[in-house]
Design a binder for these strands. Structure first.
Lengths: 226, 226
DNA sequence: ACCTGAACACCGTTCAAGT
DNA sequence: ACCTGAACACCGTTCAAGT
């Protein structure tokens, strides 16, 4: 490890902090550990960032900036599907970012730009303002909530069957009958929780479609009041 | 403040820790602050809980235990609506619990019992095992994600109009046109983000219904493959 | 302009000791 | 059995000082 490589910048601090959190978790991201990784004394970081909280805000912006906005030309359903899949991938790669969201008060320009693009896709596709609000709230609730569940799982998809077996074996006879049934019939056969993302996304996009002013129900009646 | 009230118990420690996190946030919940609130020296808490991480696990269980399970007799849609509304209320009252979920590896008996009841409601209503898995993943993604968004908002619903005005005023001319339009047309008129919960829940329950083996689409074809 | 050393007020947790 | 005091290895951050 070289004594000092490039001059310390805010950008380099953010990169190193991201890598630290990715590799060892958010708890391992201390100002002191970050400084060491940067080959610098702890106080040097404070010359580029006022305090740790500001650094965390930059991390959130950095991660959200990696989420692909909905491609402008595409039909709304495809465009939103692309951006939701991208959001899930990015947040799965940096699960600590979702936790930081909770502590962030004011969004930065990157988040605002992204939100504006999503809203623009909906409004441009003919959704009215209230429907766009419903759609956006639902889409992001699904994506955020799915990633939260995914990052909470005590196993990765590959090891699900073994873990399910262990859990079932540890449960008292007769307890949690439905969970046990689910584990026996579903998880053992290679169930991957991650696969539920596409299932859910399709349903959520169907739901969004039903909010479109032009949508009709199965009897041909308009789904949304004018 | 009395010098010492009741003898210290694990139960009292969990109650005090919950109150501390509710009132001052998760960061204020330190072993030392908790001890002071309990009228005891820091190390006394360790006699009832092996370490802080175990205490946090107990907090999560305590909060999840407050979520009403789906009432057994009711039709599935009503039963799941009740439990989702309850989950949202409880998690909104203790937003730090959602963050702790991420760090929890193995669920306790309270969570397992709850999950079993939800799964039982779905299976008892005639959903097959794969459909129950889809439905559960979607429902909880929605509830968790909604609460996460809700707790991240930089304003409560009552002050949304003022905050929206400030934000719009602060934005550079011509930037974020769709966000500005949304703020102008929707937020100003008393838009409450919290109201999106019922809208989204209805759509999500509709989506779940479409997973039922008996469900048909608008052309009368079965929605789900056999 | 950029980085540093020493210090302060905190953490969670250990261990041996008190009652 | 239950609680304590002192100590250790950490935190984030201040301030005055170095180059």
């Amino acid at each position: 490890m070289p004594a000092r490589r490039a001059p310390l910048t805010r950008e380099r601090a953010v990169q190193a902090a991201t890598a630290l959190a990715d590799e060892h978790g958010l708890a391992a991201l201390t100002m002191r550990a970050l400084a060491e990784r940067l080959g610098v004394r702890p106080m040097a970081v404070y010359h580029h960032v006022p305090h740790k909280d500001a650094l965390l805000g930059l991390l959130v912006e950095e991660v959200l900036g990696q989420v692909a906005p909905p491609p402008p030309g595409a039909p709304w359903r495809e465009a939103l599907g692309t951006r939701c899949r991208s959001a899930r991938e990015v947040l799965r790669a940096h699960p600590w970012a979702l936790v930081l969201l909770e502590s962030r008060r004011t969004p930065g320009p990157t988040s605002l730009e992204h939100h504006d693009a999503v809203l623009g896709t909906l409004l441009g596709a003919g959704f009215d303002v209230p429907a766009a609000g419903h759609a956006y709230a639902l889409l992001d609730a699904f994506v955020y909530g799915f990633v939260l569940q995914e990052s909470t799982l005590p196993f990765d998809d590959a090891h699900a069957p073994e873990v399910a077996d262990e859990i079932v074996a540890a449960v008292p006879e007769g307890a949690y009958p439905h969970l046990v049934r689910f584990a026996r019939e579903r998880v053992r056969e290679g169930y991957a929780f991650g696969d539920e993302f596409e299932v859910g996304l399709r349903l959520v996009l169907d739901a969004v479609a039903s909010l479109h002013p032009g949508a009709t129900d199965r009897a041909g009646r308009r789904t949304v009041d004018a």
